[in-house]
Design a protein around this nucleic acid. Structure first.
Lengths: 334, 334
DNA sequence: CTGTTAGCGCGTTCAT
DNA sequence: ATGAACGCGCTAACAG
């Protein structure tokens, strides 16, 4: 039998007090006599009372101590580190984080963001997957902080916390050049997203600075979504005058590269973007960064915006670090 | 300037209709004339109206099309896969998933679970970290489905979806025995959680079945939370008459083992529990399973329970598979 | 320290 | 096809 859920009024009745007094027990504990508190609490327990946050937040005009986080790619460890970073900062401020996830589609993003905003969360953090966040414009103007993580929001004035993608890729490329490479390929997939465009630009910067012409053949495979990462790398290495060094634009591509190079006697040099679990064991040189910090900074920004939502939007850029483990320091094989 | 947020009444006024008519546009679209719909929608847009889910759900007595998921360990890739599995099933049913994360503490679990329930989610999925879920008892009796994932709930009658941990560990151990090992260690940390106890039992089953006595020295390091995984393995291998094979009870321990064995000429055999990203590249034999499926089944169960909450609780067990990649097939070195 | 009144924004009666 | 009034559960304001 589904029994009716107990309300504050029920609890109050059982405890022999007014509903407001009962209410106070769950918020303003201070101003209630100990005896009354006891009576109310035991009544609540008997009735299995659980405060209705919906009603409470409705009354309060929102849920300012709950932040929402929209996460697109559920399978990417990087984003969990971001989530953990957000979490840790919010924990210190007594703010609850609710994460709404989607299966990585533009509509999905908007749907869950709308859902969170409909709950009147105090602030919204998101990793954009759609290329248009205009739908959040109104919300921001109503004072809800919106913070974009990893990529800037598009068609929306919002704060953002991103990586120094361009500089990171430039340094990786430079390091390869210093180790004698001249045929260097950048591989990624998809290539059309912000982070990849930036990294690609950094790669170009370095080549140009060293007077190395772009080899357009190497770019022919960019953004080939139909091909598995491993295969993209194989194709690159099967060219004549193949690259002697490869920069993998993300985690997945890097691991694909490792698979492709598994049985090669003289594998090309490899630098990955994004550190990973076993990179040290596999001696993989990577462009690393503090994903936790990305989340922490975003959360801090959101909290600051709660106080002063009219401040001009800012963009924070976090540094990257080249971690040399061997794979990126191999000299050219020919 | 923080302007007041528009309500349905404001929209109705601007559109020149009653608030109920405006309301219908956002729910019962069918029974409103197209012209009115247009008028209301454009008014809504002008005012940047966003429906207040708090009010709506309050009226409805809950948010049945939103499920909550309590996830403890944010850093464990296994749980992302579970989350993704849940998501994919809920997507098919138009249900939104909100994930509340905790910093892996018992109080954290209860706090976020309470928060979710206070939002009156339709169902609660959780990976227990606390060893007592009695606090959810009342909720389940009120008809909210509670599904426990990876570990059964304790002191709570609830459905659960778990792995065949014991059988998986038994098979791994058996395989090692068949390859000639007799000094086999099981390493994990923490060891006090359900999954590890089960796996340890499976390991014991296999040893006993083969008439191999337990070597208590190998168990002395179980649950040594002060020691990093890598160090636990080092300690094991530094014993006299060390194990010739190791079963790592989870991901972290397995990677720790790989680190510890990195420079060994004749590393012991190794089987890990939980598959991971680069296990194929590192030739690591693992006990694998379908983490996605774990999430999907849990979500299905929750949906079924929404319809019939009085059905007796069931426990689903998902199989594990030994994936032989080399590390587990090495013969004993002495 | 405690009770009364009113209303948060919406949707469910009933009417028309 | 549309509208009026009431109430979901809770708390801010004001008593007392």
């Amino acid at each position: 039998m589904v029994q009716r859920r107990a309300t504050l009024a029920d609890v109050a009745r059982l405890a022999g007090v007014s509903s407001k007094t009962a209410s106070r027990v769950f918020s303003d504990k201070d101003k209630v006599s100990p005896a009354t508190i006891q009576a109310v609490l035991s009544a609540a327990q008997r009735l299995r009372f659980r405060p209705n946050a919906l009603a409470r937040n409705l009354r309060h005009g929102g849920a300012p101590h709950t932040f929402g986080f929209v996460m697109g790619e559920l399978e990417n460890p990087f984003y969990y580190a971001v989530a953990a970073g957000i979490q840790s900062t919010l924990d210190d401020h007594g703010i609850t984080l609710i994460v709404a996830t989607t299966s990585e589609s533009a509509e999905g993003e908007q749907r869950v963001a709308d859902e969170l905003l409909a709950q009147r969360v105090g602030a919204l953090l998101l990793i954009p997957v759609s290329d248009d966040q205009a739908y959040l414009q109104g919300e921001r103007q109503l004072g809800t902080p919106v913070i974009s993580i990893d990529r800037p929001a598009r068609n929306l004035i919002a704060d953002s916390v991103v990586l120094q993608n361009r500089e990171g890729a430039r340094q990786a490329t430079l390091s390869l050049i210093e180790h004698g490479h001249r045929r260097i390929a950048y591989a990624c997939n998809p290539a059309s997203v912000f982070t990849q465009k930036e990294r690609l630009a950094g790669y170009h910067d370095a080549l140009q600075g060293a007077g190395i012409p772009l080899d357009v053949r190497f770019e022919s495979l960019l953004d080939d979504l139909n091909r598995a990462p491993e295969e993209v790398i194989r194709k690159l290495l099967a060219m004549e005058a193949p690259p002697t060094a490869i920069i993998a634009g993300n985690n997945r591509m890097c691991i694909g590269a490792l698979r492709a190079m598994r049985e090669m006697v003289h594998p090309p040099a490899l630098i990955g973007f994004d550190d990973f679990n076993t990179a040290d064991i596999l001696d993989v040189t990577v462009v690393s960064y503090d994903a936790h910090e990305l989340g922490r900074r975003a959360a801090q920004l959101a909290i600051e915006r709660m106080v002063d939502s009219s401040a001009p939007p800012i963009q924070i850029e976090l540094p990257t670090y080249l971690i040399r483990r061997g794979s990126g320091e191999r000299p050219p094989t020919q």
